[in-house]
């Protein structure tokens, strides 16, 4: 079997990568889904949005906040945790 010239193979690779990238262009693969809207999920969503990403924040409860919202106050300043 005749082996293809190297250049062609490179082109094949490049066009494959390009086509994947092009496929992403009109799409939303730059987005991030955050599962859970407790303190960790909320902080993550804020960081991601502030650094230029679109975020889908998903939570099973009807409001975000998680368990931290249930806490009365928090260590060490005894600030309200909301």
């Amino acid at each position: 079997m005749e082996s293809e010239p190297k250049g062609t193979q490179d082109q094949v690779h490049r066009s494959l990568a390009d086509s994947i990238r092009e496929g992403f262009e009109g799409n939303t693969f730059g987005d991030v889904m955050v599962v859970g809207g407790g303190i960790s999920g909320v902080q993550a969503s804020l960081d991601l949005a502030a650094s230029g990403f679109k975020v889908y924040l998903v939570d099973k409860a009807p409001a975000i906040g998680g368990h931290m919202a249930q806490l009365d106050k928090t260590f060490p300043t005894n600030d309200c945790s909301i």
Partner: peptide
């Protein structure tokens, strides 16, 4: 919980840097 969240974001950022800002 807060800094592991930020930390994970930085790794998402490493992965998706080429798309940054394109959707805002």
């Amino acid at each position: 919980s807060v800094f592991s969240a930020s930390g994970a974001c930085s790794q998402c950022g490493e992965l998706l840097d080429y798309r940054r800002g394109k959707l805002s």
